[in-house]
Design a protein around this nucleic acid. Sequence first.
DNA 1: AGTGGCTGGATAGCGATACTATCCAACATA
DNA 2: TATGTTGGATAGTATCGCTATCCAGCCACT
Lengths: 205, 205
Amino acid sequence: MRISELARTAGLSLPTVKYYLRLGLLPAGRAVSATESRYGDQHLRRLRLIRALRDVVGLPIDRVAAVLSAIDEPSDTAYDTLGRAVGALSTSSPGQPGDEGPAAGEFPLARTAIDALGWTYDPEYPAVGQLQAALAAAADVGVPMEPDRLATMGEHVLAMAEFDLSRMPPEPDAAIEYAVLGTALHEPVLLALRRLAHQHLAARS
Amino acid sequence: MRISELARTAGLSLPTVKYYLRLGLLPAGRAVSATESRYGDQHLRRLRLIRALRDVVGLPIDRVAAVLSAIDEPSDTAYDTLGRAVGALSTSSPGQPGDEGPAAGEFPLARTAIDALGWTYDPEYPAVGQLQAALAAAADVGVPMEPDRLATMGEHVLAMAEFDLSRMPPEPDAAIEYAVLGTALHEPVLLALRRLAHQHLAARS
DNA sequence: AGTGGCTGGATAGCGATACTATCCAACATA
DNA sequence: TATGTTGGATAGTATCGCTATCCAGCCACT
């Protein structure tokens, strides 16, 4: 498959595919001469992944690149790889001018919430910062997360997470990719379902 | 409160506040002379809301404007207002060149999923399109939503939605705002909790 | 009455993001 | 040999979300 066919099949313009190649999001094809390379199914899948992360999950290109490189080059430990990859998904950390915050203990709302749920509090994890920001914003604007609402949400989220974990493939490499893609691509599903559930309940009342 | 104090209190630059005024996101202050207006708490709250919708929920400015105007100018029926406001939150519908799709029956995956859950299928509702896109993307990329995963998610999401509904204020006006803000601002909380739950479970295994 | 600073209003510019367009010489294919 | 595509490079474009500048009016203070 030549590059123009790849682009056409993926529904992208040829310059766009070249752009992704240039950025390293898409690995180069198998060079067949100085002016021709061949691309395969893996490239097509890669393009679909890129577009899904961009269009459906809403990640900016550089975040997509970080996710892909985390998947491609596993770290020493699986835990570390996963942290790196999921960290790259963080949607809300442009960060203050300073640095990415090793300013631990700066997440009082998140800490309180996590303690109330009896979960593990680790300020290094980006989701803690996200939780803090989300809780603060909700409270600021007049729709705070009351303890019982938080408890309800926590209970159901934990149940869903247990399901996810039970489905994780046993092989470490596959598990990483599964975890990252599942984290990212099931989020829009979850949000859409929540809105539909609201709609469903509102309509029948 | 003058505009410069408003900007300082809200943590925004003065040109930014002027920009929001210009776009109509922030209502004009009470004019006190040709060159001075006064702003109150409502303006401060509005600015916080704008920033929360932008920074935490991640909406582009024009979507923020649509949400605010839906809240500000209720339609004839509350149902309609709510639909308009929540529709404005849709994160993934730049739409094809054609039009916004009255192409009903175009959401097979969503339809199957909603039928399996026994919920109400209404293709007019934007969340249906989102669900379709999300399911298609997940399947495309190799992490499909299997029926039992969908059933699990649906069950828990429905339980959370029931809690939300039980907490809705009785007065119609307040209910609209509550519903819109709750929909928007609790989403980031939900996502952060999901990631934390994964983290919590992964850490203890 | 004079001076400095802030105001509403308008317009222009800027930096980042995500492409898109153009050009080129080296080939491939017919 | 004619036509077309390729990899590679560079420059241009559109949009977004501000940001900067300018202006004349006006207020508060001296």
